[in-house]
Design a binder for these strands. Structure first.
Length: 267
DNA sequence: AGCTGGGCCTGAGCGC
DNA sequence: TGCGCTCAGGCCCAGC
């Protein structure tokens, strides 16, 4: 499941390959089953890519003529060069002779071309919280946000509003690290500060290992991330908590599988 | 306005 | 063997 560390790993491989390239032609699935899967992709031929940036889980590539190319990997999205198979949903031909291919078995990924900064067609991006590994991620604002919401803390993190880029894996990891029960609706300043630190630590470590490959995630060069064997909570149901040896428990929260320690993660 | 729950999609894994 | 069912979770959205 591509979250911030996985998307950042893809960005680091795509940026040097795409910077300065001009898109000569574009093809995308003409009958997308999700209405917003492809948005204005027909504007791409002739556009020059200035670089590949990232906000949360969104890749954002500035183009010429004041446009931006927005790429989202969804669940199973991946970019490769010069490949072809049944899961290819879009192709961008480049002026260096190569073809950037977007593969996406489950079709949750998205490609959109928008006026720079105009994210009306992407509401999650429009309301995206601060970048966790930048100065934007202000502790006081995070404490205030957690104090104000009436949601359980994990679904709130997954909304992308208090902080950008945290998905199901790293939410479980960060909440375990901060000793907060994922269903807690009372996260005060002290625990919010611990969570703030845990989010940064968990994401930083995962980026160093080029993300978590549970099953599907692959980078542009086809390699897997190396973070899976370092997970302490996500997918570890039944295993002893590394802190207190209590068996980790699984619950469904906000429709998402959630693993936590029933002893040392407090409500 | 903020929150909740259901929906989209399809490969993998399971039981029969 | 193969069929049918359930599960997985990114974002979106209708309806409180």
């Amino acid at each position: 499941m591509p979250e911030l560390p996985e998307v950042e790993s893809v960005r680091r491989q795509l940026d040097p390959e795409l910077s300065g390239r001009t898109i000569t032609d574009a093809w995308w699935d003409p009958i997308p089953t999700l209405p917003r899967q492809f948005h204005q992709v027909g504007l791409l031929p002739g556009r020059k890519i200035q670089g590949v940036g990232r906000k949360g889980k969104f890749l954002i590539a500035p183009l010429d003529q004041g446009l931006e190319l927005i790429l989202h990997l969804g669940m199973t999205g991946a970019f490769r060069f010069d490949r072809d198979d049944d899961w290819v949903r879009a192709r961008l031909w480049l002026d260096d002779g190569r073809t950037l291919v977007f593969r996406d078995a489950r079709r949750f990924g998205r490609i959109a071309v928008v006026e720079a900064g105009d994210y009306g067609s992407l509401p999650t991006l429009a309301a995206l919280g601060p970048e966790p590994l930048s100065e934007e991620f202000d502790l006081r604002r995070f404490v205030a946000d957690l104090g104000r919401t009436r949601s359980a803390v994990k679904p709130y993190l997954l909304s992308q509003r208090p902080v950008a880029g945290v998905g199901n894996i790293y939410a479980d990891e960060a909440l375990w690290t901060a000793r907060i029960h994922p269903a807690s609706r009372r996260v005060g300043p002290t625990r919010a500060a611990a969570l703030h630190t845990a989010i940064r630590d968990v994401l930083s470590a995962a980026i160093e290992r080029e993300g978590t490959t549970f099953r599907d995630f692959q980078m542009v060069n086809g390699e897997s991330g190396r973070n899976a064997s370092f997970l302490v909570a996500y997918g570890q149901e039944g295993r002893p908590c590394p802190r207190c040896t209590t068996a980790l428990r699984r619950m469904v929260l906000g429709g998402r599988g959630t693993t936590y320690c029933p002893r040392c993660q407090r409500p």
